[in-house]
Design a protein around this nucleic acid. Structure first.
Length: 281
DNA sequence: ATGTCGAAATCGTTTCGA
């Protein structure tokens, strides 16, 4: 089973590229972010015509997330609603559409678009930190369901310095500050493991290149799009890669897709090859 | 050197957010 994440930076502008990519890679489920469209205008029919089930949670111009799946999507949840303690519900029930979740093949898929944060110390940065604290509480509640968990999306955080092209200059700044890294690590301490780092520990693997400053041509990127798996899924992981070639498309998204391949539902006869060292945060 | 995008309103040019 292949699960993918891709910040498409407008689902309507990128629809043909999304369909082409789905046809080429054939993932079981693709989780997209920054759809930038209200639900009434989401290109539902065009994806369903291609044989996919879709669910989406969007707003005009900004944010927005969606799931595109070959399998049925069940128990769809919008935002943190349904799990978040009452005193925090108002937080996510506000304007920003950043989370959608569903069960696919008995896996709880949680698709995130973490706030960008703008600059350190800004109001948007404060919101990002608070949102992450809120997400932690959401996960503590989700944990009680005891479902195999796949948390993925655009985190807007480079967790370690190897995840940045120029750590000397950028470490400690926005998307790489201690507060946001620690907030994410706290969430991951709830039994979540970076699927990509199971297979590749080196640097120079990026999932996002800024449109500005010729970042793509100079390969000045960041690894901010992640797939995290609960232990039961991690043990069945066969591979994880970033499909950087689509960043070179004409009129590309600024992000590349990340894909994980799982032996799921587990087949006892298949041995998964993986490194001995499992990274936990 | 933020050098580019996408969307929407202030509309065919500027603004905001990323």
């Amino acid at each position: 089973m292949q699960i993918a994440t891709w910040n498409v930076n407008s689902v309507r502008t990128r629809l043909q590229q999304i369909k082409d990519w789905l046809e080429e890679v054939e993932p079981d489920i693709l989780c997209i972010q920054e759809t930038k469209v209200q639900d009434s205008l989401f290109p539902k029919d065009k994806l369903e015509e291609s044989g996919f089930n879709v669910c989406f949670h969007g707003q005009k111009s900004y944010n927005g997330v969606a799931l595109i799946s070959r399998h049925p999507l069940t128990d769809v949840r919008y935002g943190m609603d349904g799990e978040l303690p009452n005193d925090l519900k108002a937080f996510e029930l506000g304007e920003q559409k950043r989370i959608i979740s569903a069960l696919v093949n008995d896996i709880r898929i949680v698709n995130l678009y973490v706030p960008n944060g703008s600059a350190l110390g800004s109001e948007k940065y404060q919101y990002k930190i608070e949102w992450l604290h809120c997400l932690h509480r959401y996960f503590k509640a989700l944990e009680k369901r005891e479902e195999p968990l796949c948390l993925l999306g655009d985190f807007n955080i480079a967790l370690e310095d190897v995840d940045i092209h120029n750590p000397d200059r950028l470490s400690g700044g926005i998307m790489a500050s201690e507060a946001e890294r620690n907030a994410l690590k706290k969430i991951l301490s709830e039994n979540l493991h970076d699927a990509f780092r199971l297979f590749e520990q080196g640097t120079n693997h990026w999932s996002w290149w800024d449109y500005r400053s010729g970042a793509w041509d100079r390969d000045r990127g960041w690894r901010i799009d992640h797939i995290y798996l609960s232990e039961d899924l991690l043990q069945n992981a066969r591979g994880c890669y970033i499909d950087k070639k689509v960043r070179g498309n004409v009129q590309p998204s600024d992000h590349a897709p990340v894909v994980v391949d799982l032996n799921w539902p587990p087949d006892e006869n298949i041995e998964t090859e993986q490194n001995d060292e499992i990274f936990t945060y």
